[in-house]
């Protein structure tokens, strides 16, 4: 599919080759699944697949913005665990309170990240590692290291367990709406373009007079908020706040963002492709589960991680080629 000999950045961006590749792979895997497994296209499989992956898409969206600025957010998994506990505690007051409450808590963590990175000039990797540990510890403290059951009497569990207008789960509907808004923000607003410009060259952006700090603060707070939303979906879908969940989620999110064609060094990225990347990684699991179910192979979850790793490796290899062929600016 790729004309590797005549590869250059211009073609890459103009044609979005990698983004296209993600979509092709996604469609290919879906067709493969539909043809091979009887229940693959069943309403149950689709619903549960989307419901489960809504959380990952949400944190991948936030992560995508952070990575586009050239940063990283390692705290998203822990923040999701923390906010799932918050959401569980707030669940008696209904989703109207629990959702904004938990998201705000997430935004709070993002604000701390932003402050450390922008004002205190701590490298993103370290700053978000600190918040990751803090959120993890915080979740265990406020929950007493126990899962916190939600109030089943309120409307809280609707978000994770019921369908909007009888069509799609509320969780994926909300995340899809979020993705649409963020797509618009990235492509159509100064803020979004500044996020990309900052990742493409922070000094240059400053000297062009762009609001660099605002774009970075927005990205980290968005990432925190997305993690908060994921926490709400987690608590709502599983009926409990889970202080021990979220381990390794940041890596899944980074993987989804990278598979979606976003450069880890920042400056290039796409929201639809990030969604596709998250779906693609989820689908690999889904298909391996089906394959296990057929009894033809028996791959453990550990092997599935190996396969995911291999997938990431291939993508990173591809990206290294892009960055190294990037024209130098003198």
């Amino acid at each position: 599919m790729l004309d590797t000999d005549a590869f250059d950045l211009r073609k890459y961006v103009a044609n979005n080759t990698q983004t296209t590749a993600v979509w092709f792979a996604l469609v290919g895997l879906i067709i493969f699944g539909l043809l091979r497994y009887d229940n693959f296209g069943s309403a149950y499989n689709i619903t549960s697949f989307l419901n489960y992956n809504a959380m990952f898409i949400a944190i991948s969206l936030g992560m995508c913005f952070v990575i586009m600025t050239g940063g990283i957010d390692l705290s998203v998994g822990s923040v999701a665990a923390f906010t799932s506990v918050i959401a569980a505690y707030l669940s008696p007051y209904g989703i109207e309170v629990a959702l904004p409450g938990a998201v705000l808590a997430g935004v709070g963590f993002g604000a701390i990240n932003g402050f450390c990175i922008i004002a205190m000039r701590i490298p993103p990797f370290i700053a978000t590692l600190v918040t990751m540990l803090a959120a993890k510890g915080g979740a265990l403290i406020i929950s007493g290291a126990e899962t916190i059951g939600v109030d089943w009497g309120s409307n809280f569990t609707k978000l994770g367990m019921e369908k909007a207008f009888g069509l799609l789960p509320w969780s994926i509907t909300i995340v899809a709406a979020l993705a649409l808004v963020l797509w618009l923000v990235l492509e159509k607003t100064s803020l979004g373009r500044t996020v990309l410009a900052v990742g493409g060259g922070e000094d240059a952006s400053t000297l062009m007079g762009l609001k660099v700090n605002r774009a970075k603060a927005f990205s980290y707070m968005l990432s925190g908020g997305c993690a908060g939303l994921a926490g709400v979906i987690l608590a709502s879908g599983f009926g409990a706040g889970q202080p021990l969940e979220g381990i390794g989620w940041e890596l899944s999110a980074i993987a989804a963002v990278v598979v979606g064609g976003t450069l880890l060094t920042g400056g290039l990225g796409s929201i639809p492709a990030t969604v596709a990347g998250a779906l693609l990684l989820g689908l690999v699991f889904n298909i391996l589960n089906f394959e296990n179910g057929r009894g033809t192979i028996s791959l453990s979850a550990y092997w599935q991680m190996v396969i995911r790793g291999g997938f990431l490796f291939a993508v990173i290899l591809f990206q290294t080629r892009v960055t190294s062929s990037r024209p130098k600016v003198g």
């Binding site: 950045l9 961006v13 373009r193 990309l196 410009a197 990742g199 493409g200 060259g201 000094d203 240059a204 952006s205 000297l207 062009m208 450069l263 400056g267 290039l268 990037r326 024209p327 600016v329 003198g330």
Partner: peptide, 12 residues
């Protein structure tokens, strides 16, 4: 040192 962003389009 040309303070522009090479990854972004000419228009941008």
């Amino acid at each position: 040192e040309l303070n522009l962003v090479p990854l972004r389009s000419v228009t941008e």
